[in-house]
Design a protein around this nucleic acid. Structure first.
Lengths: 375, 375
DNA sequence: ACACGGGCTGAATCTAATA
DNA sequence: ATATTAGATTCAGCCCGTG
């Protein structure tokens, strides 16, 4: 069974009594209960300082349940920087000389975190992009869909060369090619998402276990100690336990602690033989028409026709096509010229190769074979 | 033909004489030659401050040709920050109030760049990940393969809402789903990579044209001015010219300028027909509901319902509609009957045509096509 | 039992024009 | 300047109810 320690208890327990526990308290002061150079890896999911204004509705007028918790509010960038510096310094002390730290964030905070890491003499090993299979759309159409978050992986300093990186395990898990710095995972939802009795999510930003599993499999060995200074609903602890690693969590809010404890206590550790990395699911990659233009397979200005040359359209530089006064995607315009509701532009539109007409789908196949290994 | 201007020339040329030129000189001082608020978009590929130590060999013992140029050397993070702050401030002055800036970098420098952007009150719109289809492997097997670079897209400040984002074009080009923040492109190689007479690459970090093409298609309109303060081999200029945009480049090294000039002069701009930007409803002329009544497309007294005939309203002669005791615009009444704050009356309300229900938006389309004939 | 469709939701810095 | 109004705007995935 895992336990919760108050700060006072954490400070007075027997040596190593803090291992596999959750310490209740503020991140920086709670870290004082831990010995110098005692943890192998830190995974930190700090507040992002989202700075949201007002409310946001979906096109169907439903309200977006924003992260507006008190713990994500900072008065200024300076205040956020001071906070970041303080917890990173405290983490630095408890990290073993060959330990590494992971920090996850979004564009709201990750640049400040990264700069502070460098200022404190941490040495960045990689930035790793978590690509979400199912991100929330941009509802107002004013930006690109924010479809990823960024993790920074850093060692204690530039000279620390002895950090753990399970290169061969990562490579084997990735179809025998090196694991890249961009990872594809779904967000945490469905059965994995912790809900309270009313069906409300326990924590607004619960991370997927698959993400933590790859982090832990990549940068720790069985028996290592993984510290999470912003423990939340305990994903780090649950995955660490399942993978035969030890954890330490720090968390201020009792509700989160309660949920995390129950969650972790129900985790069954895997046997030592099964501690292998799972790879993300692969699906046929979707190729946008734009990709053909960008890769030079089809030039702006090219005329497309249907198989029987009854309709024609011109390819524009922005990846749309135009036929008379109709313009839009290959699918929309294909539907429009035929007077239909829908059309598969990939098979409808053809390009001339010599005297022959070939469907643009043939070009997609070329791109797809290049992309297949990248998800 | 494009031209090169010395700094002195740039300062003394006729108004707008700096457009479609390369200014030779240091980034910050050369920017002084440009007027306040004169460029629409900035694309910056600043030195990455790579901090490489020693040499690196591939497994076959061949030497990796690292970026060890003088211009990439900085004494410290502080020196790099001061440099970053200086050129970003200079860029800020020449950027139009609704202009946006793109900066590309790697984990070596992008966190410092991002934090500085925020410190200078730029407002981050997205961070965009360039996923490389063919990145260099990690030869030592001590890290994840560094397979991406990061771009930050930011507006001049949080209040600048009028920046250009060709949402509909991006979506249409991406198979009718929103363009995401992770983009997949090959690195620049093969015929696109500029080589000198000896076959050596002209510039160590030449960016792929496809990447610039998407940046420019997303965030500029034809005729806009795109500034690149670290022009290098001129990818920004070449793509801008091809896509019917103007460019301004700043570059210190004569070798790069020579290569860029030759490259840009050989570019053939695309025709205006292929450069038409896909636009959505937002760009359509506004039509008042009243116009439908005045033009006889819908008669006062007509009964409107929603798609599922759950709500109904009657059209009044003054262009308002009434549902029970609620009366007002099609939008207000639509919202009211649903108990919502807002509603698009054009798509909510339907009229009967035979046994079919059609949205009144279809009638608006009729009005618009009539209006188009009269242009 | 299985298919299908509607409802709901996720770390979000999310409108533009007119009065 | 602020306030009001028009009206534009979503993707993937899970759950659940209905046929």
């Amino acid at each position: 069974m895992s336990h919760v320690l108050s700060l006072a208890e954490a400070r007075s327990v027997r040596p190593n009594g803090w291992i596999d526990t959750i310490i209740r308290g503020d991140c920086v002061s709670a870290l004082e209960a831990l010995p110098d150079q005692s943890v192998d890896v830190i995974f930190a999911d700090p507040p992002y300082n989202l700075q949201l204004g007002g409310t946001l509705h979906r096109p169907d007028q439903s309200l977006v349940d924003a992260v507006d918790d008190e713990w994500d509010q900072f008065a200024s960038f300076e205040a956020y920087d001071a906070f970041t510096r303080a917890w990173l310094l405290a983490c630095r002390r408890v990290l073993k000389p060959n330990g590494t730290i992971w920090v996850i964030g979004s564009y709201h905070n990750i640049f400040r975190v990264g700069a502070t890491l460098q200022d404190l003499n941490f040495w960045i090993l990689n930035d790793v992009v978590w690509r979400k299979t199912n991100p929330m759309p941009n509802f107002k159409g004013r930006r690109f869909q924010n479809a990823h978050e960024t993790m920074i992986w850093a060692s204690r300093d530039a000279k620390a060369k002895g950090y753990t990186f399970n290169y061969d395990a990562m490579k084997a898990a990735n179809d025998d090619v090196q694991m890249r710095s961009d990872w594809l995972f779904p967000i945490c939802s469905g059965g994995e998402r912790l809900k309270d009795a009313d069906g409300k999510k326990v924590h607004p930003t619960q991370k997927p276990e698959a993400l933590l599993a790859r982090v832990i499999m990549a940068s720790t060995r069985p028996g290592d100690i993984v510290l999470d200074p912003f423990f939340g609903s305990g994903t780090t602890g649950a995955v660490a336990k399942r993978l035969g690693r030890h954890f330490v969590g720090i968390e201020r809010e009792q509700d989160y602690i309660d949920a995390a404890l129950a969650r972790i206590n129900s985790v069954q550790p895997l046997g030592s033989q099964t501690l292998t990395v799972m790879s993300g699911k692969k699906a046929e990659p979707r190729v946008a028409f734009n990709t053909l233009i960008e890769s030079g397979l089809i030039a702006p200005g090219t005329v497309l026709t249907d198989q029987k040359r009854r309709h024609s359209a011109i390819v524009r530089a922005d990846g749309t096509i135009a036929s008379g006064s109709d313009a839009g995607s290959i699918h929309r315009v294909g539907a429009k010229v035929q007077g239909l509701d829908a059309c598969n532009g990939w098979t409808f539109w053809h390009y001339a190769e010599g005297s022959e007409l070939k469907p643009i789908d043939a070009l997609r196949a070329v791109v797809r074979s290049d992309m297949a290994r990248l998800d």
